[in-house]
Write a protein that binds this DNA or RNA. Structure first.
Lengths: 122, 122
DNA sequence: CCGTACTGATTACAGCTGTAATCGTATCGA
DNA sequence: TCGATACGATTACAGCTGTAATCAGTACGG
């Protein structure tokens, strides 16, 4: 049911999740400069997202306004779960352990997570 | 530099990470039954992984033995980082917070992570 | 010695992706 | 009114992916 969002499409989605509805041109202007896309490329991606029912558009005069149909939270949940399932047997602990082992957690990260978990227990 | 591993290829890699070196047939036999692949499909994927320099093969008579060149740990690190960068601005805390909000952390998960973090601080 | 079976290599082919260019139509400025 | 613009829609096209089938070489059983 949830159509797959490709990498390039995801870039477009981040723009719309941040602010919407937007015209195609507005979206194009907000795409990070590192992805050196033409306006046409952005329009193609908007078209594909429409076809996949991941965004919708409503007419605004001779142009369209685009808005997400899928919530970012849901997308993020799906992607997180997929990764943790695939690589960590579905458990979060090994992910944290893994990052810790590779020294990819700062003392502050650790402190933050501890506070967060404390809150969850209460 | 690190060539991209596709989803189907990843399935093959998990087999080799679990046990290697293996012949193509051994690999095929160990592929989870849920991926209903023919032996040919597995050989194609082995060939692609070879071409990408992600695995190597050594002759063993008229057949080959395949082994990983990339460590699972490194792959996992890359994928984890990519996800966390893309979806959580590079910080782990929001991922944990996110999973917590969606009730995807059991009490035991929380306890385990706390123990883990305690160990890291000491 | 001959066919059969097994192995890797080559080829196939449709669908998805990244990245546009071009086309058709409507609008706006001169 | 006429050409320049701006938009979305259609078309393009190569590379990657998933999923094989077919081919070519060789070793083994009879």
């Amino acid at each position: 049911m949830p159509e797959k969002i490709s990498d390039a499409e995801h870039t477009v989605m981040e723009v719309l999740w941040d602010e919407s509805p937007l015209t195609a041109q507005d979206v194009a202007e907000r795409i990070p400069a590192t992805r050196d896309w033409t306006a046409n490329t952005v329009k193609t991606l908007l078209g594909r997202l429409l076809a996949k029912n991941i965004i919708a558009h409503e007419a605004d005069g001779r142009r369209y306004l685009y808005r997400p149909l899928v919530q970012r939270t849901d997308y993020v949940a799906g992607e997180s779960k997929r990764l943790i399932d695939r690589l960590f047997g579905g458990k979060l602990t090994p992910l944290v352990a893994h990052l810790a082992e590779r020294d990819e957690l700062t003392a502050q990260d650790i402190a933050e997570i501890e506070v967060l978990l404390k809150g969850l227990k209460g």
